[in-house]
């Protein structure tokens, strides 16, 4: 009964991802999905050069890494738990590798690209 679970590792990434999603996604959806297409904001806001400029500084790199990586951990852990809620109890190791692996890939790839920019 008292063997310590390792879930705090993914749960803390999941929790941080939830906070990031809650605070940034509504704004990002508004800007990219509503404001720019409806012409409320100039399309220049999303111009490639302007956005790529974000990755010039270390603060921008960190911001991009955070909003790309953490929501992936949030989704991966939520999907993994939902499988259990739906009664799919077998193959836990397989699903862990698939979902957490995807989130890890979605963390390491942008990290590699951002550091190299």
């Amino acid at each position: 009964m008292s063997k310590r679970s390792n879930e705090p590792i993914v749960w803390s990434l999941f929790g941080a991802g939830g906070v990031v999603v809650a605070h940034t996604m509504p704004v990002l959806i508004f800007v990219t999905g509503i404001a720019v297409p409806l012409g409320l904001v100039s399309a220049d806001v999303l111009a490639y050069e302007r956005l790529a400029g974000l990755a010039d500084g270390w603060f921008g790199k960190l911001f991009l890494l955070v909003i790309i990586s953490l929501p992936l951990w949030q989704s991966a852990h939520r999907i993994f738990l939902s499988l259990h809620d739906f009664g799919i109890t077998g193959g836990e190791t397989f699903f862990r590798v698939v979902f957490y692996g995807a989130a890890l890939w979605g963390t390491l790839l942008p990290l590699f690209l951002l550091v190299g920019m």
Binding site: M1, E7, L81
Partner: peptide, 16 residues
């Protein structure tokens, strides 16, 4: 806390 920290403790919950 030892009970909570276990897989059968607080980590058994999936926030339904």
């Amino acid at each position: 806390m030892q009970l909570l920290n276990a897989h059968e403790g607080v980590w058994g919950c999936t926030l339904v």
